[in-house]
């Protein structure tokens, strides 16, 4: 029985192990100085990490990356939650609403970027409307939402794509809560807040947490939006990695890999800690209940 199990599993496991763990090993090896294809082999060395730490701009890159990721994920969660509640209230009578909001999920991020360029650039439609209304005199007077550090352009793209994603994840989770548990809690005399805190939240938390983590990890690793709409030097970490990787000096590629390995490690630890915390919270809840 067990052998048959592994037989069915092996193809997909092989692909995953080779291509995910394999590439991870490869990336780690390269960041530690093993790159014979560029004629470089200093394995093992930490010099590429030391080079990064030595540059003050890398700290700002990290700050920018985390800023975009945290702000966008948090706003997407809040707005997604509100949207999910609204959808729940509206119910299934209005099918078209359930179509419309999912549209951004279905298109590449680049489409969202195009929309933001046309609307929020300094020569974009919003700036022109502000000019028509007499609020500004020159394109420069319009807030620099794009091509600037900590600009809202990147966050707007993330929100356009991810609020629907959060809303959908939360909506489905909320739908999945059986009415009876709430009714039962009410019969047992639980207040509205208590029902929310002890019945709804524990049931929706795992689903929401996984959606939040997926968004966060994606936003940290995203390339297109910060590359196109960012302020240039210092870039976010993935863009920095890309610039290092396309540098004619091959030694820079190893630094690029070091950037990526650092990011990957950060994300894995974040996810691991988050899932640990959520498991502990769950257990605690079960005991206290």
């Amino acid at each position: 029985m067990s052998r048959q199990h592994w037989l069915s599993l092996s193809p997909v496991l092989l692909v995953m192990l080779l291509m995910t763990l394999g590439t991870l090993l490869f990336a780690v090896g390269q960041s530690l100085g093993y790159a014979p294809q560029y004629g470089i082999n200093h394995f093992p060395t930490l010099r590429y990490y030391e080079l990064l730490v030595a540059q003050p701009s890398v700290a700002m890159s990290l700050g920018l990356t985390l800023y975009y990721a945290v702000v966008a994920t948090f706003l997407a969660l809040v707005m997604g939650f509100l949207l999910a509640m609204a959808l729940l209230r509206v119910g299934r009578h209005h099918q078209w609403l359930h179509y419309v909001y999912k549209f951004p999920l279905m298109v590449p991020y680049l489409v969202g970027i195009a929309l933001v360029i046309v609307l929020f650039g300094q020569g974009g439609l919003m700036a022109r409307l502000s000019y028509a209304l007499g609020w500004i005199d020159r394109p420069d007077d319009f807030a620099a939402l794009l091509y600037s550090h900590y600009g809202w352009g990147i966050i707007l793209v993330y929100l356009w794509k991810q609020v629907p994603f959060m809303a959908l994840s939360i909506y489905v989770v909320l739908l999945g809560i059986p009415e009876q548990t709430q009714d039962a809690a009410r019969l047992l005399g639980a207040s509205r807040w208590q029902r929310w805190r002890y019945v709804v939240v524990p049931q929706v938390m795992p689903g929401i947490l996984s959606a939040v983590l997926i968004c966060f990890a994606f936003n940290v690793g995203a390339f297109e939006a910060p590359f196109i709409l960012g302020g240039g030097f210092p870039d976010t970490l993935p863009v920095l990695a890309w610039r290092l990787f396309t540098d004619p000096d091959y030694g820079q590629r190893l630094s690029g890999m070091a950037v990526l390995v650092t990011m990957g490690a950060m994300l894995l630890v974040t996810v691991w800690v988050a899932s640990l915390l959520s498991r502990r919270a769950n257990r605690w809840q079960r005991i206290s209940a």
Binding site: Q122, D140, Y147, S148, H149, G232
Partner: peptide, 10 residues
């Protein structure tokens, strides 16, 4: 261009 908003746009 845009330098008065903080950083010049290249």
């Amino acid at each position: 261009a845009q330098a008065r908003n903080g950083i010049p746009r290249y």
